[in-house]
Nucleic acid binder design. Structure first.
Lengths: 103, 103
DNA sequence: TTAGTTAGTTACTTTATGTAAGTAAGTATA
DNA sequence: TATACTTACTTACATAAAGTAACTAACTAA
């Protein structure tokens, strides 16, 4: 008795955003372009998973990766237009959490 | 070098919403009160995980569980005020997905 | 030559999820 | 009386995802 009436786009979006750490990474990148180690320490995600998530987000066109061949190499991750479009959503989570959650 | 400057409330909210299936369950309950088997089939989550999630959501005060001692027993899950307050957020995901994702 | 940098990757362990069968409490059917 | 059928779960077991820590590449500086 399958009765999936849920919009497949919504389902895909939720599938992306409900991966562990993905939301936190995007939220952190809303501050501005950042390098790997900065995201790692501010978000508290392991390098193994961060590397995986950034690859996925890049493939989805949500995150941009820019290499600066300095020494040591600097790589900056930033949000694309598609990624920046998630800001209202993040603000809503912020609002909700401030009203309904206590620390 | 730990530099977690992220708001703990936001982090908790994201921790809740980024659990697999949680968002879909809430989205489905926005339609109205529903029983276990309806959520199970419409969302496509397994009974094992659905049971776990509904317990968590009830503990968080997001979902309400009401027992109707009919035969066979009917149990209806619905969103509390706190849960309903997540609607704008869900609408944002909907909007974003419709603009930025293709099926 | 040794040490130090960033941005990863690899191997291994622990946790989360999927799958399918089982349970409890009750009614209806043979 | 026995068997089957309902919902709402739970349990046991298998697989997938995430955590941890060590390792690598490419380059510079001491």
């Amino acid at each position: 008795m399958v009765d999936k009436s849920i919009c497949p786009r919504f389902e895909k979006a939720m599938g992306l955003l409900s991966q562990r750490w993905t939301g936190m990474i995007i939220y952190q990148l809303l501050i501005g372009p950042q390098r790997f180690c900065t995201i790692e320490s501010s978000v508290g995600v392991s390098g193994r998973v961060l590397s995986e998530r950034l690859k996925d987000l890049e493939n989805e066109g949500i995150v941009n990766r820019k290499v600066y061949p300095e020494t040591p190499v600097r790589i900056e991750y930033s949000l694309t237009e598609k990624g920046l479009a998630l800001e209202p959503l993040m603000k809503d989570i912020e609002k909700w959490s401030q009203i309904w959650l206590d620390v």
